[in-house]
Amino acid sequence: MSGNGNAAATAEENSPKMRVIRVGTRKSQLARIQTDSVVATLKASYPGLQFEIIAMSTTGDKILDTALSKIGEKSLFTKELEHALEKNEVDLVVHSLKDLPTVLPPGFTIGAICKRENPHDAVVFHPKFVGKTLETLPEKSVVGTSSLRRAAQLQRKFPHLEFRSIRGNLNTRLRKLDEQQEFSAIILATAGLQRMGWHNRVGQILHPEECMYAVGQGALGVEVRAKDQDILDLVGVLHDPETLLRCIAERAFLRHLEGGCSVPVAVHTAMKDGQLYLTGGVWSLDGSDSIQETMQATIHVPAQHEDGPEDDPQLVGITARNIPRGPQLAAQNLGISLANLLLSKGAKNILDVARQLNDAH
């Protein structure tokens, strides 16, 4: 009898209710805020589980004197976190989706994509230029951005401005803007500013005609071990179906173009009346040469937790077992079709030249 009692006690200790789920994140304040929001949602869904947040620095956090596009290494903000995932030191990792490459290392998958916040870019102005827009900034004003995508589009749109690289986390960039006289304004992701509670610093939100956004911008991705079915089931509740389908289309477009950090590629997606609209573009580094096109596809946005595919093969690095396969494939095909259209119009040449120029500098 006593033996059975011990077995029952052991089973209770090993039951999922007692389990601590370890969540990996970057150390920056924004990353911690984003991770806290994901953990809060998981806690609400699984009140019996405990969650421990483990923060670590990544290569991208450490190399702050070089433009991201020049470092010449993929997975700048993800490699150390993936290493911890691989060694079973954490069970899942919360990322900004735009930091996750469209091809993940073997053994990993994006197990959830959370509801997207505003994906557009924002302009934050130096205190002396508050009330201005990019259009009304004085001639030769210097605007800071760490992104080739932003610089290429904005140089084309605002030729009277000069664009220079600015690195560091959000706090560091804002301090550089406010305390030094080098920059009249800087460009940042609206979602990051909003998550930090800095709505009052948003001086201008850039519309798609001015600057399309990065693939996955404004959404959070939760990376897990691809074979860890328990954790895949656990994080599945975080999937937002519309965000998922938009981001599958965007990531398929980028992957098929073979774009990345070192080339200016941008997108804009919208879901309306059962249609998914995808606009994508590529630019030369100075913005003088560009190709942009829009395509659409009829896609039914499923309700969360309709029964999805059981075999769960990944699409552009994403596993969404609780979302039907048909809409996911339709979104992926839309991204591939748009990429093929741009490639047929000469996108590869623009991107190759951009890559060579970026590598040469």
Rank of each mutant, 00 (worst) to 15 (best):
residue 144 G to V: 06
residue 106 P to E: 14
residue 102 T to L: 08
residue 280 G to N: 01
residue 93 V to L: 08
residue 358 N to D: 00
residue 120 H to C: 12
residue 292 Q to N: 11
residue 178 D to W: 06
residue 91 D to E: 12
residue 102 T to M: 08
residue 162 E to S: 06
residue 90 V to C: 11
residue 111 G to S: 07
residue 37 S to V: 08
residue 349 N to E: 10
residue 287 G to I: 05
residue 176 K to I: 12
residue 221 G to M: 00
residue 210 E to Y: 04
residue 237 V to P: 14
residue 148 L to S: 06
residue 296 Q to S: 08
residue 146 S to Q: 14
residue 133 T to G: 06
residue 268 H to T: 01
residue 189 A to Q: 03
residue 182 E to A: 13
residue 59 T to F: 15
residue 166 I to K: 04
residue 153 Q to L: 07
residue 238 L to S: 04
residue 172 T to K: 09
residue 225 R to L: 09
residue 280 G to S: 04
residue 161 L to P: 01
residue 217 Q to P: 08
residue 117 E to L: 09
residue 177 L to H: 02
residue 56 M to S: 14
residue 295 M to Q: 05
residue 148 L to F: 14
residue 106 P to H: 13
residue 171 N to T: 11
residue 64 L to V: 05
residue 279 T to F: 09
residue 252 A to E: 08
residue 302 P to R: 05
residue 349 N to P: 11
residue 262 S to F: 00
residue 335 G to C: 07
residue 334 L to H: 01
residue 322 N to M: 10
residue 320 A to P: 02
residue 322 N to S: 07
residue 345 K to G: 05
residue 219 A to C: 02
residue 169 N to S: 12
residue 202 V to K: 07
residue 149 R to V: 02
residue 177 L to E: 00
residue 177 L to I: 07
residue 237 V to D: 00
residue 112 A to D: 02
residue 258 E to I: 13
residue 102 T to A: 12
residue 139 E to M: 08
residue 182 E to D: 06
residue 300 H to Q: 10
residue 60 G to K: 01
residue 106 P to K: 14
residue 268 H to A: 14
residue 314 Q to W: 10
residue 249 A to S: 14
residue 56 M to V: 07
residue 186 I to K: 03
residue 221 G to W: 03
residue 161 L to H: 11
residue 55 A to K: 07
residue 46 Y to P: 00
residue 339 A to V: 11
residue 98 K to V: 02
residue 304 Q to R: 13
residue 175 R to W: 10
residue 208 P to G: 13
residue 58 T to R: 02
residue 177 L to P: 01
residue 339 A to P: 00
residue 334 L to N: 15
residue 256 H to N: 04
residue 53 I to S: 08
residue 199 H to V: 14
residue 85 L to E: 03
residue 299 I to R: 08
residue 101 P to V: 09
residue 179 E to C: 10
residue 252 A to R: 05
residue 256 H to Q: 05
residue 106 P to Y: 07
residue 77 F to M: 01
residue 250 E to C: 01
residue 133 T to W: 09
residue 242 E to H: 15
residue 301 V to R: 10
residue 62 K to I: 15
residue 38 V to L: 08
residue 70 K to L: 06
residue 218 G to I: 01
residue 94 V to R: 00
residue 180 Q to S: 12
residue 208 P to T: 08
residue 287 G to Q: 00
residue 235 V to F: 01
residue 334 L to R: 00
residue 306 E to R: 12
residue 282 V to N: 04
residue 106 P to C: 14
residue 314 Q to E: 14
residue 331 A to S: 04
residue 118 N to S: 14
residue 158 F to A: 09
residue 63 I to Q: 06
residue 194 Q to H: 05
residue 127 P to S: 11
residue 349 N to M: 12
residue 352 D to L: 12
residue 110 I to R: 01
residue 52 E to Q: 00
residue 184 S to N: 13
residue 216 G to Q: 00
residue 141 S to R: 10
residue 77 F to D: 03
residue 329 L to R: 15
residue 281 G to C: 07
residue 314 Q to R: 03
residue 230 D to N: 11
residue 199 H to A: 10
residue 135 E to K: 04
residue 229 Q to C: 14
residue 39 V to S: 08
residue 221 G to D: 03
residue 168 G to S: 01
residue 250 E to P: 02
residue 44 A to D: 09
residue 99 D to F: 00
residue 38 V to E: 04
residue 57 S to M: 03
residue 343 L to N: 15
residue 122 A to W: 00
residue 94 V to I: 07
residue 38 V to S: 06
residue 303 A to P: 02
